[in-house]
Design a binder for these strands. Structure first.
Length: 545
RNA sequence: GCGCCUGUGGCUCAACGGAUAGAGCACUAGCCUCCGAAGCUGGUGGUGCAGGUUCAAUUCCUGCCAGGCGCACCA
């Protein structure tokens, strides 16, 4: 795979520095950025500003010397034909301006190779397990789960696009205390339905769906002892359908019950014991997580002989590595942030780097209606569900809205705004750009691309559009580094805006064969990038709306 | 008390430590005999407070103020 122009330019700057015997002084890595503003060229470097202190000279003076060296290197290099000019600007930035030919070539690549032109082999096939949602099968999914589902699924798609080998997994908490309580909740409701007077404890599941399950269990004559499993199965079917309707498909549903049956938990205990990471105190069995930086040691078997949740969790994460994954990503709610250290401690106990597990805390979303927050109470079974959001605003708007903010930030989600089919609603803005392009392309019959000459695209808006398309790869790079897909939504809005501006000022059709063909190619390129981005978000790409 | 997240125009949010802090909504003034006006153009308006590091701080560090969420032999 050939190096991209950015890498080649960096190499060139490094050569120039070496020639000026400045390379040793540049302690930091040479950085070549996309400028913050189109006025500052296509690439920029702040190396002269960085060198200012060590050289005890002003950034502009240093830049003036550097630029001579750089220009000499350019003349010797193959980049000569691609670089239009290099300038010192501002406080001492060295800005590179590329020839339009470079952009025409890149656009041509997008049109001929379609999506493949946007791919980057950053993953090199590395095996990633991304675990998300993992809600207990005790009720419908909430908006908190919905946001996790959107973020996790989209991040997984992006990683796949960057050539990681990705598995989406849902950890199913299908045994233990919560399932017992679920079973007892159903049992009581069933007794209530048969006319018995009951007292319903506050910590039992209060939702109306418990009555539905009780009715069903009554019909099927399920024994009291089996009610927990029966209810969990019943609810799991609902959860799977909700996720399916949200466009989220898991490769693996990992059952905690099966994990326990497999003997892997006991095996993990033995290994920890051999490594001397367990000890007994106050009648309980503890894991020495403090060895690996946790605040305190953690109980894994309580003094009454039962396990804490941590026991299967340690075995589960160990099993992830045993299944051959190189990188684990967990999406957790903010109430779990205290568990990061203990799980990281456990993987270190087995010799894995703490960095091989990335835990992403997905902050909560607050649902608004007409500017008013909707109060939730899980205990009373009153919370906004994924199902309700889907019914109200549909999958496209829901996914886009859940992805619009940085994952670590709280998110306000106004149902009324998401429902609006107007400019207030960013998902329509992006989809509208796509539909507009399709509409133009529909009115054209077969197009002959054999003598396509993109160099007639000389307008500022046309070049801006190409440059914006090329930014897509950079954005995906940032998503990988930050483990956060939200930048894609921001980018797609910007690309759409750039397109709408072009559209408003320039006509595609009826501009003479050469220009019309070139502009058709241009908007086809935009369509490819928009479509690819929306696909990664899991949002549809309507041809008309 | 400790930990995590967050403080940017009236509202919701952007800005690898960079150049004149950008968008949308709201408010306001304009643009369709012309490929989709779900669009485009202009105007009003902003970094919680106090220090520090830096050539350069919305960004990093310290303290304070404010909001959210956690701190179990619960999951």
């Amino acid at each position: 795979m050939q190096k991209n122009i950015q890498e080649e330019l960096i190499a060139l700057v490094v050569r120039a520095l070496r020639k000026g015997e400045l390379d040793k002084l540049a302690q930091e890595e040479i950085i070549l950025d996309l400028p913050t503003d189109e006025r500052f060229g296509d690439f920029t470097t702040n190396i002269a500003l960085k060198l200012s202190k060590t050289l005890k000279n002003s950034p502009r003076n240093i830049a003036a010397v550097l630029i001579e060296l750089i220009q000499e290197e350019i003349l010797k290099s193959e980049l000569k034909s691609l670089i239009a000019q290099v300038k010192v600007e501002g406080a001492g930035f060295i800005n590179f301006y590329l020839n339009a030919d470079y952009f025409y070539n890149q656009l041509s690549k997008i049109i001929t190779q379609s999506e493949d032109a946007l791919r980057q082999d950053l993953g090199k096939g590395k095996k990633v397990l991304i675990e998300f949602v993992s809600a207990n099968p005790t009720g419908s999914l909430s908006v908190a789960h919905a946001r996790q589902a959107a973020v996790g699924d989209c991040l997984a798609s992006i990683l796949e696009f960057l050539n990681f080998s990705v598995q989406r997994e849902y950890y199913l908490n299908d045994e233990g205390n919560q399932i017992n309580i679920l079973g007892k909740s159903v049992q009581l409701r069933r007794e209530e339905l048969t006319g018995k007077e009951i007292e319903f404890p506050e910590n039992y599941y209060q939702g109306d769906y418990i009555f539905d399950i009780a009715t069903e269990a009554h019909k099927k004559k399920i024994s009291d002892a089996d009610l927990g499993d029966f209810a969990a199965d019943y609810i799991l079917k609902i959860i799977k359908q909700e996720l399916f309707d949200f466009g989220v498909n898991f490769d693996c549903w990992y059952s905690q019950k099966e994990l326990a049956k497999s003997g892997k938990v006991a095996q993990t205990f033995n290994q920890l014991k051999e490594k001397n990471y367990l000890f007994e105190q106050d009648g309980a069995l503890w894991f020495k997580s403090t060895v690996f930086g946790d605040d305190k040691d953690r109980v894994i078997i309580k003094s009454d002989g039962s396990q804490t949740y941590l026991a299967p969790d340690i075995a589960y994460h160990q099993d992830k590595f045993n299944r051959g994954f190189d990188w684990l990503i967990n999406l957790w709610g903010p109430d779990h942030h205290g568990y990061i250290n203990r799980i990281k401690a456990s993987i270190q106990a087995f010799g894995h780097s703490p960095d091989s597990l990335s835990v992403i805390i997905v902050q909560l979303a607050t649902i608004f209606r007409n500017g008013q927050p909707i109060q939730m109470s899980t205990r009373r079974g009153q919370y906004i569900t994924l199902r309700e959001v889907l019914n109200e605003v549909g999958s496209d708007a829901a996914r886009f809205f859940f992805l619009m903010r940085r994952t670590s930030s709280h998110l306000d989600f106004d149902l009324e705004v998401a429902k609006k089919q107007s400019s207030e609603n960013p998902v329509y803005y992006v989809q509208y750009a796509h539909a507009r392009i399709c509409s133009i392309l529909r009115s054209v019959t077969a197009q002959n691309n054999d003598d396509l000459d993109l160099s007639v695209l000389k307008e500022k808006e046309e070049l801006n559009l190409i440059k914006k398309m090329l930014e897509f790869k950079v954005i995906l790079n940032v998503c990988l580094i930050t483990c956060d897909p939200y930048m894609v939504t921001v980018y797609l809005q910007e690309l759409s805006e750039t397109f709408h501006k072009f559209y408003d000022l320039h006509r595609v059709l009826g501009q003479g064969e050469a220009l019309t063909n070139a502009r058709l190619a241009l908007i086809k390129g935009v369509k490819i990038v928009l479509s690819c981005g929306l696909e990664l978000l899991g949002v549809s790409q309507p041809e008309s709306m």
